[in-house]
Simulated assay, not measured.
Amino acid sequence: MTILDRTKEIAKLRGISLTDTAIKAGLADKSIYSWDRSTPKADNLQKVADVLHVSTDYLLGRTDAMNYSSVADNKQIDLKDALNDEIMLAFDGRDIPETDKVKIREYIELLDLKRRSEHE
């Protein structure tokens, strides 16, 4: 599987087009499509990996583990922050309705409150 194939695959999984991925990464809108003919620069690959929440090693085919970069850096992902990330709030390639997002946020806050009270 090529870099372009992996990028297409994860972008589809995240519910985002390659054009939108490139734009969010600060690249020219069709630049990712050229990755089937040439290897992207390391910094451009990292930008796209960050947008798609995977490691560059995953996009390069060095691993099958997606390893979001902040997890790879031993940082925890704050679920409340993740809920505000439009890429993270998609399911089966479709956006989650705002009313459901509210319910998900409330549930996470309840779990967080419960976890904190158990540790006190």
Rank of each mutant, 00 (worst) to 15 (best):
P40N: 04
D36F: 03
D78W: 07
M1P: 03
A22M: 07
G93W: 10
E118H: 13
H53S: 14
L52K: 02
L89G: 03
H119L: 14
A25M: 07
R62E: 07
E9M: 11
D73S: 13
D29Q: 13
V54G: 01
L111A: 14
A72K: 06
K12D: 13
T39K: 12
R116C: 08
N74Y: 14
D57L: 12
D29H: 09
N67I: 08
E106N: 14
L79D: 05
E9N: 10
K12I: 02
Y58G: 00
A82F: 13
A90W: 08
I96Y: 09
D57P: 02
T63Y: 11
W35P: 03
N84P: 04
I10W: 12
K47V: 00
I32H: 04
D95E: 06
D92K: 12
I3V: 06
D36P: 01
D85N: 15
D29V: 01
I77P: 05
P40V: 01
L18K: 08
D50M: 12
A28D: 04
N84W: 01
K41C: 03
D100C: 03
T99R: 15
Y68V: 03
V71C: 07
A22Y: 04
D57S: 13
F91H: 05
L111H: 13
S17F: 09
D81P: 07
L4Y: 06
A82G: 12
D81R: 13
A28R: 04
T39C: 03
S34W: 01
K41V: 01
E120P: 11
R115N: 14
N44A: 04
D5Q: 06
G61L: 04
E98H: 11
D100H: 09
I16D: 02
T19P: 03
L45S: 03
E106Q: 15
N67D: 14
S69P: 08
I23T: 11
S55N: 07
Y33D: 06
L13N: 10
R116K: 15
V54M: 09
S70T: 10
K75E: 15
S70R: 09
S69T: 12
A72L: 10
T7E: 01
A82H: 10
Y58C: 06
S31K: 05
E98A: 14
T63F: 11
T39G: 00
D20I: 00
R116D: 15
L83M: 13
D5F: 04
A25G: 06
M88I: 10
D81S: 15
G15R: 03
I32F: 01
R37P: 01
Y68G: 01
G93C: 08
Q46P: 02
V48W: 02
T39I: 00
S70W: 13
Y58H: 01
A22I: 05
S34C: 00
K80I: 15
A11Y: 02
D43S: 12
L59M: 09
V48A: 09
